[in-house]
Simulated assay, not measured.
Amino acid sequence: MNQQLEQQWLEQFKRYLQIEKGCSPHTLLNYTRDILAFYTFMRREGLDSLSDVTYADLRVYLSELFAQEYARKTVSRRLSSMRSFAHFLKREQLLEENVFAQASLPKAESRLPQFLYEEEVDQLFAGIKGDEPLDLRDRAILELLYATGIRVSECATLQLTDLDVSIGTLLVYGKGKKERYVPIGSCAIQALNAYISSGRPHLAAKSTIPTKELFLNYRGTVLSERSYRTILKKRMNQAALYHEMSPHKLRHSFATHLLNNGADLRVVQELLGHVNLSTTQVYTHVSKDRLRDVYLDHHPRA
Results as ranks from 00 to 15, higher is better:
L223I: 05
Q281A: 10
L62E: 11
I150M: 14
K233I: 12
E244R: 11
V165D: 03
S110C: 05
R91C: 04
M42K: 01
Q281H: 10
A194M: 06
L62T: 09
R78G: 03
G185V: 08
R229I: 03
A191W: 05
V282H: 08
R301Q: 13
D293A: 14
A101M: 08
S246H: 11
R59A: 10
D122L: 10
L144W: 02
E118Q: 12
L160Q: 14
D34Y: 09
H299A: 12
D297R: 11
S63C: 11
E119R: 15
L160A: 10
S278Q: 14
F254Y: 04
L47I: 15
G199R: 03
E97Y: 12
R137Q: 05
L65H: 08
H252S: 02
L124H: 00
I141C: 04
P201A: 07
A194R: 13
N276Y: 15
Y181K: 14
N98A: 08
A240I: 02
S197H: 09
S76H: 03
V165R: 13
L232G: 00
S186D: 15
R43W: 04
A56T: 12
H87F: 07
K178Y: 00
V60D: 09
I128C: 04
V152M: 02
N261V: 09
N30M: 07
A108Q: 15
A108P: 02
L216D: 01
R292L: 12
S287L: 11
Y228T: 00
Y39H: 09
L134N: 04
D162G: 07
I184W: 02
L258A: 04
Q190Y: 11
R111I: 07
Q4V: 13
L29V: 02
T74P: 00
R33H: 13
P201V: 02
L142P: 00
K206D: 00
